[in-house]
Design a protein around this nucleic acid. Structure first.
Lengths: 208, 208, 208, 208
DNA sequence: AATGAATGAGACTTCATTCAT
DNA sequence: CATGAATGAAGTCTCATTCAT
């Protein structure tokens, strides 16, 4: 990042700081209690402000929630486009690349737990988010099938969904880096190799 | 359940019919609008009753909701124990058996959409339900690993989660029997064979 | 009214009585304070009820207000159609008939002061009400002009407005029957005879 | 007002200009939406200022409103005293003079529509304004009765009210100069001659 | 002269729930 | 078995107004 770029947002004004604080607090409360059980009063008092202040910065409770969801989706999509495997890749290498993809997703989801909870696990937005993610991944997969990286007799859309389903389940219990590493490896293995016995290579990576 | 057992509850009393009607209507409304957006007033008026009637049969809105969730989980668990692959099975045959398992899950989930929505897709219960399902499946998988049906270098727990993740994603778009059949086949393939090119056998089953 | 007719609305149910009470209290408060300064809390506490009760009977504060305005207009229109002068009438008699019309309007407006305040004096509805009244009266006048009762070189519409203007001003200070009688006579005289000196007949009816 | 007097307030300071702008904008908003539906925020943002600026120039929203009402009343009274018919006047000439009075009122009310709306049509002030106007006019009428211009067997107060009532109704639909001219003539005729058939002279002035 | 930021007070409305019948 | 009627408690949002700069 250049100097100039940094100077575009130099000193956040007081209002901007207040807004950011409210957003952070709101994310925490929404994540903890869900949309309906979070009261605007909870948010503002956690932020040390009075109720009307909330409405200076957001049109409504719903608008604030949606802003958080949108932010999560934006980040998630940005990550996804990053993970397209473009190079030609040896079969042996594929497993590692796929593992890396899972890992990056899991790290991402573990990074900002509040936002993840809101955007990825809580309704009503979570279904939409996952549908989106499935289609972004499917679009990667389709290209990768064309490159001959993956078998093409299962539609990219289905694989996208399967990918999402795996991430979804794994993300619910990925508190530690170690767990994420294990989970990513396991998903990648299943996805690349299947559960058939052929691949049971020496049992060197037993998972818990 | 035997014939005799069925005849133990022969003529439902009026109260029982009213209760059943309320439960059905409640399921429909909860499924359509979610827990928080469903008002007791909606339920009773859809059932052609007055508000106090609701409280004759249920302690609270929450109690009714939980009854529905519990019923869903009961059925789901009952199904799951059914799907254990006990026989020794040839590798070639495995794919069909796993496909069948997926298919049964998907059919089950398509059977009573309201209950599925409530128990499987809507928070706050859905996470719990899926955790349960994952562990029931894991318990099957563990046995199947011991029978040498599946590779054992990936923990049954992880496979259980992956299984659930796949079902979860597929269930969201399984309106027709054909879609379910395709989805089950695709999941089974990925799960058994992986995405590696090795298995791209003649492209006879391209999915949409 | 026949017996049967009376039995159509025999015993008002408790709810109906409550609704009527709320409406009466609301009329009083709206009349006293105006729409914006009247709080739903004022109304219900004057009626000895809790806030939510108000919303059992009315969709909103505004709906209740509009119901009152509509009721007032309905009554006012009903009265107006009554006052058409249909018979052929001698010039000498006309003054008394017009006086009677003014008198009936003024009595009507003095009958239910709350409703009058709301429907006839308070915005935003009052302008609309008066426009309506002017047109109903104009429609009477037009017929009366055709019958040769009034001069026809001033449009019925204008006369309708003038009529309304007179009633409007007089109604603001017509607390006693005597005042109304005097006001009606004065208006009728001006309307029928004008202020020209020709009519200053013996000064037998000096007004205050 | 003489020339010299005008030059006493030569260059309005910036503050004075801002105040005037706020007042003008406030008049427009109050007229458009009424007192209660006009928010201080609307006014300042229409004026391109911030909220605190409003309170630099006015003690409160109410104070600003009252200032506008007072200004309107001042102008209206100034006009009214102007319209006293002092000369002895032939009966034939009277109609034209009364017409002129009505016309001047209607022109005045059409001159600054915002102020008219606020001072003459909107509550709570409008009733008071009209009461004032009625008494100013009555005071003219009383003198004119003494001069033998008008019949004296109807009290000047009543005539004042009737006058106001006519103006009130006519002012609501006097957008064009032509309409005002017609309305003034019609009012004057009714007021001077009444509706009796005696005056239906050749129909030379049919109104719409 | 002007404003960015904040708030006290309070309004309307909703909803799960209960009581008496 | 069922309901007409009522409410306690709470929540979202608005607005005139002020402080510190």
């Amino acid at each position: 990042m250049t100097r100039a770029a940094k100077q575009i947002e130099p000193i956040p004004s007081k209002g901007e700081r207040t807004r950011a604080k409210l957003l952070a607090v709101a994310a925490a409360e929404f994540a903890r209690l869900g949309y309906h059980n979070t009261k605007v009063g909870d948010i503002v008092s956690s932020a040390g402000l009075s109720q009307p202040s909330f409405y200076i910065y957001f049109d409504s409770k719903e608008a604030a929630y949606e802003e958080l969801v949108a932010e999560f989706r934006r980040r998630l999509q940005a990550l996804t486009v990053t993970l397209l495997i473009e190079r030609d890749v040896a079969a042996a290498e594929l497993l590692d690349l796929v593992t890396l993809s899972f890992l990056k997703f899991l790290h991402f989801l573990a990074e900002d737990l509040d936002l993840t909870e809101i955007g990825f696990f809580q309704p009503p937005g979570c279904t939409e988010t996952k549908k989106g993610l499935a289609s972004w991944i499917a679009s990667n997969i389709a290209k990768e099938q064309k490159s001959g990286i993956f078998r093409a007799d299962i539609s990219a859309k289905q694989i996208g969904k399967i990918f999402v389903g795996m991430i979804d389940q794994m993300a619910r219990d990925s508190g530690s880096r170690a767990k994420r590493t294990q989970a990513a490896r396991d998903c990648a293995r299943v996805l690349c190799e299947g559960l058939g016995l052929r691949h049971q290579a020496g049992m060197q990576h037993t998972s818990t």
